[in-house]
Design a protein around this nucleic acid. Structure first.
Ligand SMILES: [Mn+2]
Ligand SMILES: [Mn+2]
Ligand SMILES: [Zn+2]
Ligand SMILES: [Zn+2]
Lengths: 168, 168
DNA sequence: AATTAATTGAAAATTATTCTCAATTAGTTT
DNA sequence: AAACTAATTGAGAATAATTTTCAATTAATT
C-alpha cells in the first residue's frame, strides 16, 4: 500500500539535493567521446536534460522533456543512452522498490537517499560512518565491496504535519 | 554488465543465512488466519515452500517448486499470496537492481544482505551501529523512518580466488 | 565527396507482475 | 449433513518498464 502512495507522490516531488556542477556542451561532448561514442544531437539533448531541472528522473520523464526540444527523438534512444551512461558510471541509477528506475548525473561525491513515502520528496545525504561500517561488514565476510544501495524511507516533516492536521 | 553476471549467478546461489525457526502446519494456519484469510491447500503449500529450501526465492521459483507438489496451482495465486504476505509483513521482499523480487519469511531479527555480484551468493548480516546511524540521519532531516534498504554488493572470497586462478 | 560503421526511430518482443472473470471452495449457517 | 455465500482460484488477458530488431539515416573518417 505504501507503494501506490509513493508512486503518486513521486509525480511531482520537490527535492533537497546536494550542489551540482554546471556542465556545458563541451563537457557533454567529452563525456560522449570518453565512452567511445559518436556525438549526436540526441545524446547532447539527453545530457542537457539530465544536467538541468529535476535531479532524479525516470527514462520516461527524460523522454518527455527531451521530446519537447527534439520531437523526432525515439524513447529507445533515451533508454539506450541512459544504459550506456550508467554502465560507464556517468549516470547513477536509483531504484526505489519496484518503481521505474530514476537516473541522475553521477555527482563527484557519493551519496545515498532518504525518500518520503507519502509525497516522494527526496533528500540526499552523505554519511562516512555508515560507509566505513559497510566496508567492515564486507571485510568480515571476506567480500571485496564493489557497490551498495542504501535507501531510507520515511515520512517527511511536512507530511507528518499534514497527517496531524487531518486527524484534528 | 554486472547485472547479467548477477542474474546468471543467482540461478543456483549458495547462501549463508541466519538461523530460521522451524515452522509447522499449525504455524502456517495461524499466519493465514491472522491475515483474515481462508486456509487453502495452495496457501499452505506456498508457506511450506517458503519455510524449507532456499531462503531468498523469486515468485517464479516458488511457483515451480510448488507446482511439483501441487500441479494445478496457478502462478497468479503465488504472486497474490506473496503480496498479501508481504503487506502483512510475514514475508520480506528483497529487491536487487532491476531483477525479479525475492522473498523470504520475515525472520524475528531484522537483517540486511551482502550479495556476490559474480556467483550470486547471499550473506545475511545484522549491524546495529548502521541501524542507529540511519535513524540519526532520518532525524537530522526531520523524517520519521519507516523502513530502509541496505544491500551490499561485492565479490566473495571464492570468486576472488577463481579470478586469480584464471589470471595465472 | 565517398565510405562505412555507428546510430536512430518505430514497432515488435520480452519480462515481471497484476488484473479479470467464471468456476470452485472454505467456512458458516441452517 | 446440506445449503449458502463470500472468498479464492486458475487461465489467460492486460499492463508497465525496458530491450531488441531492423531498415533508414548520419557522424566521423578517408
Ligand atoms: Mn541522488
Ligand atoms: Mn535475507
Ligand atoms: Zn512528504
Ligand atoms: Zn561469489
Amino acid at each position: 500500500m505504501s507503494e501506490v502512495i509513493l508512486a503518486e507522490g513521486l509525480q511531482n516531488p520537490e527535492e533537497q539535493v546536494l550542489k551540482r556542477e554546471n556542465l556545458t556542451e563541451k563537457d557533454f561532448k567529452k563525456i560522449i567521446r570518453q565512452m567511445g561514442l559518436k556525438v549526436t544531437q540526441q545524446r547532447l539533448v539527453i545530457l542537457e536534460t539530465l544536467a538541468e531541472g529535476r535531479v532524479h528522473v525516470t527514462a520516461q520523464e527524460v523522454f518527455e522533456i527531451v521530446n519537447d526540444k527534439f520531437p523526432e527523438m525515439g524513447f529507445a534512444t533515451v533508454y539506450r543512452f541512459l544504459r550506456k551512461l550508467t554502465e560507464n558510471n556517468f549516470v547513477t541509477e536509483v531504484r526505489m522498490g519496484g518503481l521505474p528506475a530514476r537516473y541522475e548525473l553521477t555527482p563527484k561525491r557519493h551519496h545515498d537517499h532518504l525518500t518520503c513515502v507519502q509525497c516522494g520528496k527526496i533528500v540526499e545525504f552523505e554519511n562516512q560512518e555508515i560507509e566505513k561500517l559497510q566496508e567492515q561488514v564486507a571485510k568480515k565476510f571476506g567480500f571485496e565491496l564493489t557497490n551498495h544501495v542504501l535507501e531510507l524511507y520515511g515520512k517527511c516533516r511536512d507530511c507528518q504535519l499534514n497527517s496531524k492536521r487531518k486527524e484534528a
